[in-house]
Design a protein around this nucleic acid. Structure first.
Length: 896
RNA sequence: GGGCGCGUAGCUCAGCUGGUUUAGAGCGCUACCCUUACAAGGUAGAUGUCGUAGGUUCGAAUCCUACCGCGCCCACCA
């Protein structure tokens, strides 16, 4: 008799167990191992972040895979780490110093960065701690950070290689500019939101016309959503085929307010259908306009400062914020009778993904990566299925993006990040602002690209080299993650062993940012794919379907859930409600699934372990010596093993939880445990109980690591010290006895039928009923005789007679189970009306089914074309229904 | 403007390559049970024209088409 606490306390136990695992070094991977490697690289969370439900789902999935493979004998490496999240982290620290009234510019670059590092030291391990709390079995000794020396070295190496290959360039283009963060963003970092805006119609006078009477003769009307950008207009463009504007050839327009002279240019790209068909051209603030301007050799006029206030070009508007200026300009135009009208206009407006401020398209000198050449191979490997997406539909999304890929703006005007490894010589290059230096200038003179600061200018030998002030996009380090974390550019044993990794588990939001770029980087720098499978799980949303985010305040904090029900329950719950790739709609009560299941498992284990004789334990089970129920539960276990394996192989995690839930709860607990209470062969039963329990624990361990380990530790005579490193169960064919299963199922059906009759006729639990069993074969007779004790106990009855053609007891009803009729005398007063109603209803139902079956069988096409077994099934179904119907009617007659 | 996903029991959802499903689970609901592992439990039960309309097929919740609702992603129409 073992003493096992009635309640399991996840709060206390989960921490204890995790420490024990860590101490035993169970998660450490050995690159020199002879075993097959299996590697997953964690999608690095933001170093300033805290664990949210998305992380919980993402990491639970990875942990399930890693633990499953570990138990299957693979040398597993789950590579953890965090990324420095340039803009986000800098924003956090800036907010922090703002409390002391400071700006980063006041502190200076060096001091500010010191502050960020301090912040990272203080808070950067929060998310790591939380991942441990979730149970993640990462090899924490290998934890990497994108700003580590090794990874920084990889970043520089990559920059230099791309530069030397001509795939990195610097130039003036329209980029997405976040006025609040004060930096350029890549296209992927802009979130487009449909916004109800206005389309403003404005008159631009034709040069020399005093009175503005006739449209397209005295003036032209242009339509714009952003009137403030007119300060930067250099032309008006119309479609050459547009008859309305033919007469304007050779004429000029006057920009209202600023009185700038504007060309009229004719360009095919202008859509005559939109607005008035006349497009104001603002090359410095719109990508389309920029292109048109380039084609027609027009200059650009930048009208904004980095913070999106109007600069000196704007005259009276100088210093105004862009939206303030918009209103002011509209007002002024109205005054001057140049404003025609506005209409409501919905359009997509870009917002910064970090601070959500409206992004400003802005002409600026930035660094770019040429993506076309990199994308080619990345498209190929996916088309050739070397990299596979699960679910498959993401393949199309990926390919569509890849095939229309645009160059990647990688420079950021912030301080926290990998500084661009380029130095300029102020002696060779005369520049006012170092950021404006054009590296594509004459022969690259005075420019140095390398890992470390040059001692002297390679061109003139001078000592006045200044490093480019910008840093690189954080994703420029993340895209190297699968190999940089393994030691690249060094040729390490880790790389050799674990690259390519096996699977990447991530959310759809990150396909373009990260997945696609990792594939490109892997192929370019390692010559091989970074991972074979990409599993895209759903987005975690709240009950209303909104994405969970801190700013919306609709989050369910996983740590709160863990506090309440434990990490195991959180994991089991979230996995069981997540079907492949479908979004997850969460609410608090969902976590009861896991909590209740953990409770059930704990109590069942208590029962098994408490009633164990000391000398039971191991020893092979002889299939021939096993009872019906033993064989039944053992072969059901075989099925469960198959289902779990198959589900995990196909990334169908909820199927695995469903199979385990069904097996452990409804087969093992509901039936086998109950039957075990009256087993004759105690020793064998105990052996089976323990065997099935330990196997179940193992199968469940990847999903619920803690409680399974806790129970495992209490199992006597276990084969492995830790369940974590125990050998994954495999099916044992010798227990697959289909006859035993059929018989057991018949017994279960008989008992269920008895219970049904009892409930329907309100025969109280306390009173035993007498039962007579009528069988149609001697096999059934033998079986029922053998299992009488179980039927009596679980069906709460006393079996009076078993046989062929037994006499039906007076005033009895019969439940029909296969070929067995279960007669239950009702005794006392019988409510005939009640029975009649029930019978009528059922007969009607059965009649419906029978009719459809008859129709089917009468159809020659069906009997000819359908497979034999399907037809046979229909026939036996028909027989069954007929027998059932006859039985019901007999019941009614017998009671009258 | 393109692409994708979803509409199945009161609620939240499973249901993979058409026929072992007389459409399932969990929660909720009803009735009866503190049966010595578990009331976070046990037993039994009720509730569905599988969004609508067509089509393919001997056979469709499952495949095709259109439509209606809901949601997401991508896109330089100012």
């Amino acid at each position: 008799m073992k003493d096992i606490p009635t309640k399991y306390d996840p709060q206390k136990k989960e921490d204890e167990i995790y420490s024990a695992w860590a101490k035993a070094g169970l998660f450490n991977a050995d690159e020199n191992s002879a075993k097959d490697p299996y590697c997953i690289v964690i999608p690095p969370p933001n170093v300033t972040g805290i664990l949210h439900m998305g992380h919980a789902l993402n990491n639970t999935i990875q942990d399930i895979l890693i633990r499953w493979k570990r138990m299957n004998g693979f040398e597993t490496l789950w590579m953890p780490g965090t990324d420095h999240a340039g803009i986000a982290t800098q924003n956090v620290v800036e907010r922090e110093i703002a409390k002391e009234g400071l700006k980063r510019q006041d502190m200076g670059r060096e001091n500010f960065l010191k502050k960020v590092w301090e912040w990272k030291e203080d808070y950067g391990s929060t998310i790591i701690r939380q991942l441990k709390r979730l149970g993640c079995s990462c090899d924490w000794d290998r934890t990497r950070f994108t700003m580590d020396e090794g990874l920084s070295n990889a970043v520089k190496e990559v920059f230099i290689r791309l530069y030397e290959d001509g795939l990195i360039y610097k130039g003036d283009y329209i980029i997405n500019w976040c006025p609040r963060c004060g930096t350029a963003l890549s296209d992927e970092e802009v979130e487009h939101r449909d916004t109800d805006g206005m389309l403003y119609y404005i008159k631009y006078p034709v040069q020399g016309k005093k009175k503005l009477e006739k449209e397209n003769e005295d003036y032209v009307v242009v339509a714009t959503t952003r009137p403030e950008t007119m300060l930067g207009d250099v032309a008006v463009a119309v479609n050459p085929k547009d008859p309305r504007y033919e007469s304007l050839k050779g004429k000029k327009l006057i920009l209202p307010i600023l009185k700038r002279e504007l060309d009229i240019v004719f360009d095919e790209d202008v859509d005559p259908e939109f607005g008035t068909g006349a497009l104001k051209v603002t090359p410095a603030h719109d990508p389309v306009d920029f292109e048109i301007a380039n084609k027609h050799g027009l200059a650009s006029v930048n009208v904004m400062n980095p913070d999106a206030t109007i600069n000196s070009v704007g005259g009276n508007y100088e210093g105004m914020d862009r939206f303030e200026c918009r209103e002011a300009i509209v007002e002024d135009l109205k005054q001057r009778k140049l404003f025609v009208r506005y209409e409501e206009h919905e359009h997509a407006v870009g917002h910064c993904y970090r601070c959500h401020v409206v992004v400003e398209p802005r002409l600026s000198k930035q660094w770019f990566v040429k993506m076309g050449p990199l994308a080619k191979d990345a498209v190929r490997v996916v088309k050739e299925q070397k990299v596979k997406f699960y679910p498959d539909r993401w393949t199309k999304v990926y390919l569509n993006w890849m095939e229309n890929i645009r160059d990647w703006c990688i420079s950021r005007q912030i301080w926290w990040g990998h500084r661009i490894p380029v130095w300029y010589c102020s002696d060779c290059l005369k520049y006012a602002d170092v950021r404006d230096v054009d590296i594509n200038g004459p022969g690259g003179k005075g420019v140095y690209v390398g890992k470390d600061a040059p001692k002297a200018c390679p061109t003139c030998g001078g000592n006045n080299m200044e490093q480019d002030p910008d840093v690189l996009d954080t994703w420029f380090s993340s895209w190297l993650w699968p190999f940089s974390t393994l030691g690249w550019p060094e040729d390490t044993k880790s790389l050799e062993t674990f690259y390519s990794t096996d699977v990447l588990v991530t959310a759809q939001e990150i396909i373009f940012f990260w997945v696609a770029r990792m594939i490109m980087a892997g192929l370019k720098f390692r010559g091989d794919i970074p991972f074979k499978d990409v599993y895209i799980h759903g987005t975690v949303r709240d009950a209303t379907g909104t994405k969970m985010s801190k700013s919306l305040g609709n989050v369910i904090d996983p740590l709160d859930v863990i506090k309440e029900v434990g990490s195991d329950a959180l994991r089991f719950s979230i996995i069981s409600i997540t079907s492949q790739g479908q979004d997850v709609f969460l609410s608090r009560d969902k976590f009861d699934i896991g909590r209740n299941f953990a409770n059930k498992l704990w109590n069942a284990s208590r029962y098994v372990l408490m009633n164990l004789d000391e000398d039971v334990l191991e020893g092979e089970l002889d299939a021939k010596a096993l009872s019906l129920s033993d064989l039944w539960i053992l072969s059901s276990l075989n099925d469960c093993i198959d289902k779990v394996n198959k589900s995990l192989e196909r990334y169908r995690f909820n199927d695995a939880t469903a199979a385990l839930y069904e097996f452990i709860w409804h087969k093992y607990c509901d039936w086998y445990l109950e039957i075990s209470k009256m087993a004759k062969d105690k020793k064998t039963t105990q052996k089976v109980l323990v065997k099935v329990l330990t196997r179940s624990l193992q199968l469940l361990h990847p999903i619920m690591p803690f409680i399974t380990e806790e129970i495992w530790q209490k199992v006597p005579g276990k084969t492995s010290k830790w369940i974590t490193t125990s050998e994954w169960p495999s099916r044992e064919e010798k227990f697959d006895d289909s006859e035993a299963r059929e018989n057991m199922e018949l017994m279960i059906a008989v008992i269920s039928a008895l219970r049904n009759v009892r409930a329907f006729w309100n025969i109280g639990q306390a009173s035993k009923v007498d039962v007579v069993l009528d069988v149609s074969s001697s096999v059934e007779e033998k079986l029922l005789e053998r299992t009488t004790p179980y039927i009596e106990q679980l069906g709460r009855c006393s079996v009076k007679e078993i046989g062929k053609n037994v006499t039906r007891p007076e005033q009895s009803v019969a439940a029909l189970v296969g070929g067995v009729k279960v007669f239950v005398p009702l005794g006392g007063a019988v409510d005939l009306d009640k029975e009649r109603k029930r019978v009528e209803k059922k007969v009607e139902e059965l009649g419906k089914y029978l009719l459809s079956i008859e129709k089917k069988l009468a159809n020659k096409a069906f009997t000819d074309k359908a497979p034999e077994d399907v037809v046979q099934k229909e026939k036996s179904k028909q027989e069954r229904f007929r027998a059932e119907r006859a039985n019901l009617q007999e019941n009614l007659a017998a009671l009258q």
